[in-house]
Design a protein around this nucleic acid. Structure first.
Lengths: 194, 194
DNA sequence: CTATTCCTTTTACAAATGTTAAATAATCAG
DNA sequence: CTGATTATTTAACATTTGTAAAAGGAATAG
């Protein structure tokens, strides 16, 4: 495999989290499919049940949904980030959320059912995904904490510190809804802190 | 084991999620310790690194922390609910959160390091905890969604529907901070919808 | 290059929520 | 049972955030 092969790169990132045997790596790589999506396209659409796990190889994407006709961004994903519609994937119910690219993006797509079957044979692979889940869970708890008792300005400051790439590259309207405020409000905040 | 043995009861709930062999059940039960805590006591305190996984056997508890001297409730747990300080447990860092009982409560305590060691031997046990983690993760995402773009009144209505036991049994000040508002605000909301 | 579209800011006003303090109501310990 | 403590509500006012509309900037397609 070439060094810049995206699947090889993903496996390298995985091995930092959980050591995988060459056999598991091979079986896992067999499931992976590289997907190229142009900017502003939906990778998965609302109403569909999620059965695929994605990693961003290059580019950026978001999970969003509509709350009373308003576009709300729930999550941003950049290189090597996992992007899944967790509720739908784990419960088997249709998702009211969609995944959309923010620029031309290449993903690695892993169909969940055969992946979950591999878990039976390869304990380490299941452990890897348990650890990825732990990481996502902790991140979500931290965001919850931030939404629960920080002011909008504090949340924006936190985002600028923790994810400067978001503030640099993502349209403000998406950042606003991600922070749980309107874009007008975010503009005001930016005006006062600059 | 008697039918009302709390560990037996927990194992029964576990088997509904993931089938466990008698051997795993035995090994797991060996780790469990029953803990009785009086009302309003801290089970785990702020600053300590979390290395224990708890289940509520009977009673109720909350996870809370201080945000600028204000007591903020992050999570409520009732019978059969898992209660862990996830960030600390999964990262090994000291927690800025504490666990406190809301009434006289009995817990089942499971020390995490030996549990994680059992995962090496018993694949099914790791899978059980992966599934429990999935469930907690989905719940947290749903709460995030609620905090991100629902009004305080909508969040209170949702809570009354989804967890009437919380509204019935928990002091309003804890519910208010759980919803991300002040108790004054919650009182106002209650006055308008009654 | 230009026109169009989309993004961001600004303004003025409305609504929701926070703050502080006081008044009730409920609970608890002795 | 009673006084003390704790919980909840109410009030008045301040602050934050939302809404709608308009104006200015930036990006994009042809």
């Amino acid at each position: 495999m070439p060094v810049d092969d995206p699947i090889a790169r993903l496996l390298k990132a995985f091995n930092d989290i959980q050591n995988l045997s060459p056999e598991v790596e091979y079986q896992f790589a067999e499931l992976c499919k590289k997907i190229e999506v142009k900017k502003h396209q939906n990778l998965q659409s609302i109403g569909q049940t999620c059965r695929t796990i994605y990693f961003v190889n290059e580019g950026a994407a978001r999970i969003y949904y509509y709350k009373e006709d308003k576009d709300v961004t729930e999550y941003f994903a950049f290189e090597n980030d996992l992007i899944i519609r967790a509720e739908s994937l784990f419960t088997g119910k249709p998702s009211h959320k969609a995944i959309q690219t923010l620029k031309d993006t290449s993903f690695i797509a892993i169909p969940a059912p055969p992946l979950f079957e591999l878990f039976d044979q390869y304990h380490d692979l299941e452990r890897l995904f348990r650890k990825l889940l732990e990481k996502s869970y902790v991140e979500t708890i931290n965001r919850l904490e931030s939404l629960q008792f920080q002011t909008a300005e504090e949340r924006y400051q936190t985002l600028m510190t923790k994810s400067p790439v978001v503030v640099r590259e993502i349209p403000l309207k998406h950042i606003a809804s991600y922070l749980g405020i309107t874009q007008v409000s975010l503009s005001r905040i930016r005006a006062t802190i600059t």
